[in-house]
Design a protein around this nucleic acid. Sequence first.
DNA 1: TTGTAGGCGTTATCAC
DNA 2: GTGATAACGCCTACAA
Lengths: 342, 342
Amino acid sequence: MAKPTVHDIAREAGVSLSTVDRVLNGRADVRPKNAERVKAAVERLGYVRDTHAANLAKQRRYKFVFVLPEGPNHFVETIVAAVREAGYAQASDRVDVAIMPVNAGDPHAIVARLQTLDLHSLDGVAIMVPETPQVRDAIAHIREAGIHVVAFVSDLPNSKCDHFVGIDNFSAGQTAGALLGKFLRNETGSILVVTNSMVARDSIERRYGMDEVVSRDFPRLRALPTIEFYDDPQRIRETLAHALTAHPDLKAVYSMGSGNAVMLDALRDNADVKDLVVIAHDLTAVTRQGLTDGEIDAVIAQNVGHLVRSALRVMRAKCDATVIFEAQEQIRIEIILRENLY
Amino acid sequence: MAKPTVHDIAREAGVSLSTVDRVLNGRADVRPKNAERVKAAVERLGYVRDTHAANLAKQRRYKFVFVLPEGPNHFVETIVAAVREAGYAQASDRVDVAIMPVNAGDPHAIVARLQTLDLHSLDGVAIMVPETPQVRDAIAHIREAGIHVVAFVSDLPNSKCDHFVGIDNFSAGQTAGALLGKFLRNETGSILVVTNSMVARDSIERRYGMDEVVSRDFPRLRALPTIEFYDDPQRIRETLAHALTAHPDLKAVYSMGSGNAVMLDALRDNADVKDLVVIAHDLTAVTRQGLTDGEIDAVIAQNVGHLVRSALRVMRAKCDATVIFEAQEQIRIEIILRENLY
DNA sequence: TTGTAGGCGTTATCAC
DNA sequence: GTGATAACGCCTACAA
């Protein structure tokens, strides 16, 4: 009645422990007849391996690294916090997690940092950087060393990664489009679209997604060309002021990426801007406050805790060559209002 | 450099393994002087117990039961599926999970079923039933046997549970209210509120939450008295037809509980009902289809996978007397549109 | 190709 | 009070 162990299998199959082990782990040749008997016994008794006991015996510890953009960024900060927490929580689970900050804006710097990774003592890397040919090559090199690589938050579609952990930004943009359309149900007007930089593929995909839904389902709304403000408060302020006069029918602002603080500041400065629908991405200290104060109507977010834990689970599954429960690893596109802010 | 073990502690403290164990687990009296030395060594070497090795040695298996409403119910079905999946996934983690279906409508039947639980071979129970005095007493009895009890999905505020795993239905109602208000941004009119039964405290709390937000933030909207249709398609159809004539300013339908299929059918039958905002709770086959078809504008949901895994983690933590990471166990109130439907 | 013996980090059972 | 010693379920030499 108790869970069967390798001993039970061995007895049931009339062979020794090591033979059972060999067929279970495909280590060496076993006479077909014996292999069959073992498999039959496994089947009959419903044996499932105790992975913890196995890891204990193997003295295995998983070593994972998160490669994250450095520098001040509210969203990345929430990720760093989540990684730390997860690392702490998993320490007793035989996994060590470290953070490697990189200058995400400089492809060469990224590669240089990636090359400092100790490929011998490493099991997996979760990488959150923009994809460039250099990065792609560096990743190929890491994978050749037998290390598992997951694209984290930003997909790396042209690189050979084991997995992508993050949301589909096209769908996130569609979600934004749908919210804009539903929030402006019977209204006509234009939508200001801002982001810090369209270099990030995230913003591009969100823009496409939003455009698709707005133009198809809500043609009475018009999304204006994307305004980029390269970390320049002055620029966005002026642009916003200009947009207001240029588009008296402005009904909404859609902030696709980082720079929400600047955007909100600018909105506040233009005191005549009232009753605009404001939608932003990512739950940070800034957007959280924006929701609470009623300055932001909705935030489209991904749960960073899930993001990190999913990356960890996926890397472990890859290491153990076990299957992933896709449903659990699907990162949700969340919609947050003040009322369901947690 | 490697993780210190009890052996290291013993050597460092100049005592035996057993003494270390006694100090670590407070089993028997140890001479204060030795206890101090052990504690100091633990501190110095940064020892943390390997819980998996411990569980292995203890031969511990966790036995958990989910007590769930039986009978046809789309939402419960999704939970059952999630429990099965989680049970399968955790089988190798030394946890056995079983499902006990109960006739949730009959307090005496619930108690009768609960009494069939084998309190000797059980570690924890997750209970999803309406709270009644009988249920409360039965739970007290289970807890007295040293078994951990978590209220699951529906809170049991007057019972002595270890924890509640689920969303705050008042907040869920507030979220619905906010969505209604934002979807009907500049409109005036009334909102039809339906549910299968207001006996469930979930519906009551959602109603309160919705009312609060609507009356405070969107006074131009008026939420009509709750209509209950006890699994009676005919009733809701007639009621809806009646409501339409009685309230020509009807702008939205808010379905607070189960019975979404019936509600949608009725909406379809009243073909003259067009352009109503429809908000429902819980992601099931029905609401999923409703979203896809554009019949439902938004669904307010709780992720059943998280619900189940959280309950499991909490019960384990209670068994091991370890701390819970509150942030991880917080169940989100999710807002699902067609675009972020997964 | 197969089996035996020992160890992984912890707990449990004995004697001392 | 204390300390050997043998489990727990699995893996890995090494020997046969």
